Simulated scan of single mutants.
Amino acid sequence: MKNSFLYLTTVLIWGSTWLAIEFQLGIVAPEVSLFYRFTMAAILMWGYCKWRKLEMNYSLREHGYFVLLACFNFGFNYLVLYWAQAYLNSAMTSIAFSTLLIINIINTRLFFGKRIASRIYIGASIGIAGIVALFWHDFGGFDFSSTAMIGLVMALLGTFMASLGNMVSVRNSNKGIGVLQGNAWGMFYSSIILLVYIEFSGAEFIIDTRWSYLASLAYLTLFGTVFAFACYFVLLKNIGPEKASYTIVLFPIVAVILSTLFEGFVWQENTVLGFVLVITGNAVVLTPLKKLKMISLKYSQRQQQKAWLLK
């Protein structure tokens, strides 16, 4: 039940952040908005850790991994994905980012030598096919001969960086580092790294005083960063990155639903097909093979009983 709650919470929050990010773009440079976001998140995380009197002293080696977590999960991965959207629409970026599931599976095998069940590859493939189906019209209109190829490469690079951050988080958990403490240090280092980058990039520290910007910034900080990352990293620890990262495939479902409610998104045949594929893939990934066989056996028995009753 705990893992189910964490899973659902992560999907709902991060699925809604795609809409919130739209209100962040325009006036304030992306790196500056990210600096505001992770600085406030770091303050909140540190305040909570101090209030709970959690251990915050770690070796220099561990701080090196906190810096890696900052770069790959709380910093440059976001920047690269923002840059990608200068060449791609949000649908294409979502499709590219959903490959995090596959990349996490591969990296889990490479970094931790963990054997991956065959059903996870099958379920992941079905889920990715569902994402493509959901955004088929955008995907079909993609011109691979244009500069959009640059955007696609950037989106995949940002996704790969996020996967490396996931691996660092798993490593930290395996070493007994608490999720909250690791996130607090990671966000602290992220704010410093972003500050240095802003100084070199020449971006201006300005603030958008519109209510939409301030409200979305608050939402992205408190829920999209502090709460969702804590839930997701606990999932990484509890059920492994190959399963936890399937939340990435479900994000577009929430995004499409919100787009339907607030942006007038029109459902089509490919939308329905995509939803069915994503849900099916999710069930395959999260259901052990023995349970799948049991479900299949029970279904078969019921069919036989129905046939017998009809006779």
Rank of each mutant, 00 (worst) to 15 (best):
E31L: 05
A148R: 12
E204V: 11
S245P: 02
D208S: 13
F233E: 06
I128S: 05
N172D: 11
F23M: 11
Q24N: 09
G158R: 04
A215D: 06
V153Q: 08
L68P: 00
T287Y: 04
L236G: 00
A218T: 14
S173P: 00
L54I: 04
V234H: 08
T10E: 12
I177Q: 03
I105V: 14
Y246Q: 14
L236K: 00
V234L: 13
I177L: 09
Y58E: 04
V276Q: 04
H137N: 15
N270H: 13
L310V: 08
Y82M: 09
K291N: 12
L8K: 07
E204D: 15
S259I: 07
F66D: 06
V179I: 14
F160E: 05
F139C: 05
N270R: 05
V234E: 14
P30N: 12
L101Q: 10
I206Q: 13
L19A: 06
G165S: 10
V179Q: 11
I105S: 06
V278C: 07
I192P: 00
M45C: 07
L289F: 00
S125L: 14
L310W: 10
L134C: 08
E269H: 03
E62P: 00
S201K: 10
V80C: 10
N107T: 03
S145M: 13
F227P: 01
Q181C: 06
K291T: 15
A244E: 06
T221L: 11
G158Q: 07
Y48D: 05
N174I: 08
F223E: 09
I21N: 07
F265V: 03
L6G: 08
K306N: 14
L292F: 00
I295Q: 08
T221K: 06
E204N: 14
P241E: 09
A155I: 10
N89D: 15
F144P: 01
F5A: 15
L261H: 05
N107L: 14
Q304N: 11
Y58H: 07
V254Q: 07
I295S: 03
A96N: 07
T9H: 05
R171W: 11
W46E: 02
H137G: 06
R119E: 14
S94K: 03
L309C: 11
L286C: 02
I122D: 09
I43F: 05
G264I: 09
V11Q: 06
G130K: 04
G224P: 03
W51N: 08
T147K: 15
M187E: 08
I150M: 11
A228E: 09
G123K: 05
N73I: 04
I126W: 01
L258C: 09
L81P: 00
M187I: 03
C49K: 00
S33G: 12
I122Q: 12
L289K: 07
A117F: 01
S118C: 04
I105A: 11
G224S: 12
F262W: 09
G15D: 10
A255E: 04
L261M: 15
M149I: 15
V132Y: 09
L195C: 13
A41M: 10
W136V: 02
Q85M: 15
F72G: 04
L60I: 10
